[in-house]
């Protein structure tokens, strides 16, 4: 296939037509984009310039560069450029100073921008951030801060994330779910920050308290690590204590179902989060009734922590509440009416 256009053979100025111009002058002469609106006075189809509508052949403007080349090729019987494709104006005017001068301003600017991409002026002021500390360097320590590069897969704005997503990747679920739940239940009057401080103090108490001795009569959940591992992993300690005393079900009282105005007690199984919620509430309630040991901010946290230790060691009264619920559930299991199997 021959080149679409022989640039060297062009010996005259190029009549370049970006788009059909409207005739009315009060509009800005240079339009960089097609207008988004149409005036009532405009016709529905964009009109060609007036000269194009002339019937005289010699009054008609020369066709487009590519069109002209295509016409010439048709006359001479050779294969001309494909008119369906756009005209590469940049290629045509490259190196031709005279042609470049006649380009519209937008294209001139674009050529200028290409030739020197660095900004011409210098700022009179500095936008650098100076550190206030004594470390001296200018490193702000932004981790892995690369400007977003063009993604390799077309159609994506950013690169694909690497899977699996990190555990703390979601801003709302970045912390351990158990810690989140306890924090929210510690919260009073919507003061989450105070609850978070209390939570931190509880975990600190757990990690500084001595290794618990587990009571074999009050077994922890199966698969629990040895107690010597617990203080070094306070979140596990907390989870273990709460999961161990979490009841398996709650007792629902169905009014009037037992006859004679009695309520029928029906055990209802609970989900994991519900079980934990009940256990946490028991522990917090017991802790709030304990004797204060200190004062100020850490007092409540300290009592909650000692209650958690009491749970793991089997001393806490929460265990009795749990066994009472379970005992009641066993006796009331005959009240469960299951759908008949077919």
């Amino acid at each position: 296939m021959p080149p679409r256009l022989n640039i060297l053979s062009l010996a005259r100025a190029i009549p370049y037509r970006t788009k059909p111009q409207t005739q009315w002058l009060p509009r800005p002469a240079i339009r960089t984009a097609t207008p988004q609106f149409r005036a009532y006075s405009d016709s529905k189809e964009p009109q060609p310039p007036a000269a194009d509508r002339s019937t005289r052949i010699d009054a008609k403007p020369l066709p487009h560069v590519s069109e002209e080349a295509a016409q010439m090729a048709e006359i001479t019987g050779t294969e001309g450029p494909d008119i369906n494709q756009g005209t590469p104006v940049h290629e045509i005017v490259k190196g031709d100073k005279e042609a470049q001068e006649k380009l519209p301003k937008v294209m001139k600017d674009a050529i200028k921008m290409e030739s020197n991409s660095t900004p011409s002026g210098t700022r009179s002021y500095s936008t650098m951030v100076t550190p206030t500390g004594g470390s001296g360097g200018f490193d702000m320590g932004l981790v892995n801060f690369d400007p977003p590069s063009a993604p390799t897969i077309p159609g994506l704005k950013f690169d694909m994330p690497t899977l699996p997503l990190p555990k703390d990747g979601h801003v709302k679920h970045r912390y351990d779910p158990m810690v989140d739940q306890v924090t929210n239940l510690l919260m009073r009057h919507g003061k989450k920050s105070i609850a978070q401080r209390d939570m931190a103090l509880i975990l600190e108490h757990l990690r500084t308290s001595s290794v618990p001795t587990v009571n074999p009569n009050k077994p922890l959940v199966p698969g629990a690590p040895p107690p010597s591992h617990l203080p070094l992993n306070p979140i596990l300690y907390l989870t273990l204590a709460i999961d161990s005393v979490a009841p398996l079900f709650r007792i629902r009282s169905q009014k009037g179902a037992a006859g004679g105005g009695m309520a029928l007690q029906i055990p209802v199984p609970l989900g994991q989060r519900q079980r934990r919620r009940i256990a946490i509430q028991w522990i917090l309630k017991t802790a709030s009734g304990k004797r204060h040991t200190g004062s100020g901010k850490g007092s409540y946290a300290q009592r909650v922590a000692s209650e958690l230790v009491g749970v793991v060691e089997g001393r806490s009264s929460v265990w009795e509440r749990r066994s009472a619920i379970h005992k009641l559930g066993v006796s009331a299991r005959s009240n469960i009416v299951l759908p008949r199997k077919r």
Binding site: R188, S288, G289, K290, R291, H292, G294, S295, G296, Y300
Partner: peptide, 14 residues
């Protein structure tokens, strides 16, 4: 709901 029903600490303990 009552958050603090525990006894207060003895004198000097705080």
């Amino acid at each position: 709901f009552t958050q603090d029903t525990g006894k207060r600490p003895v004198q000097g303990e705080r």
